[in-house]
């Protein structure tokens, strides 16, 4: 039995009076890649943003049901949400480096948790940039503004910035949709190399889901229609709607 790191139970979510997620029961397997696919507006982004409680930022958001991270309910009053977000990092659709130097971007997370030692910070920066294959490209420009990098480099920088916080899980919300195919391939390679991190990736791109993920969940109109191993979902879907979607009949 593979270990489950995140578990949702009867998760419902509303923005004001609009119901976005309906009775989601889903389990994320530790250290594997889970893809969330589905047409626009099906609630897949909202779903991943629930897992690190980023929906807390939206005042009209209301949630029922439970989400467990390592067996603990993330909505319970004892949960320290900053701690949760340190463990469950996120990479956004649009690269969003801070308008600071490359070094300060990567060191941002460790500094948040109180790391002041310059040598340690240097090591973390090098290690994180090395993991995303940026170190060689930027090692002489660490003081340069991160916004001077190309879009693909910026997205890898954002991934490195998240890795520097040593997360157990990384949520990726269509991380490649603003990137060219070459940069996309690089990000996908990186995902494969992060063997000791659980990844949940939202994607529009079904080829991407088949390329990178071990498990796939198909969302439609706020419901989880089907969930299973990626190869099963794409070769022998159980549900007619899943079959229609992956064969391109809608979406």
């Amino acid at each position: 039995m593979p270990k489950k790191i995140i578990k949702t139970e009867n998760l419902n979510l509303w923005f004001a009076n609009k119901k976005i997620l309906k009775e989601i029961n889903l389990e994320i397997v530790e250290n594997k890649i889970t893809a969330i696919i589905g047409p626009s507006g099906c609630g897949k982004s909202t779903f991943v943003r629930t897992l690190n409680r980023m929906n807390d930022l939206i005042p009209s958001c209301r949630i029922t049901g439970n989400v467990h991270y390592k067996g603990k309910n993330i909505f319970s009053p004892e949960t320290d949400v900053t701690n949760l977000r340190q463990n469950i990092g996120q990479v956004f659709q649009k690269p969003n480096p801070f308008p600071k130097s490359i070094f300060d971007n990567i060191a941002f997370g460790p500094r948040l948790y109180g790391e002041k030692n310059k040598d340690k910070l240097k090591n973390i920066v090098e290690e994180s940039l090395e993991k995303v294959g940026l170190w060689k490209e930027v090692k002489n420009d660490l003081a340069k503004n991160a916004l001077s990098l190309s879009g693909g480099q910026q997205q890898r920088l954002c991934l490195a910035r998240t890795l520097a916080t040593k997360p157990k899980v990384i949520l990726m919300d269509e991380p490649c949709s603003a990137l060219d195919p070459l940069s996309t391939a690089k990000i996908e390679d990186l995902m494969q190399n992060l063997k000791d991190i659980t990844i949940v990736i939202v994607t529009h791109n079904m080829q991407q889901a088949t390329r990178v993920s071990h498990f796939t969940g198909f969302f439609l109109m706020g419901k989880l229609i089907e969930f299973g191993e990626t190869k099963d979902i794409f070769t022998k879907p159980q549900n007619k709607k899943t079959e229609d979607y992956i064969s391109g009949k809608f979406g």
């Binding site: 900053t82 340190q86 990092g89 941002f108 910035r161």
Partner: peptide, 8 residues
């Protein structure tokens, strides 16, 4: 958003 998502 980026800062908060890192646990700030």
């Amino acid at each position: 958003e980026a800062a908060l998502a890192m646990g700030a």
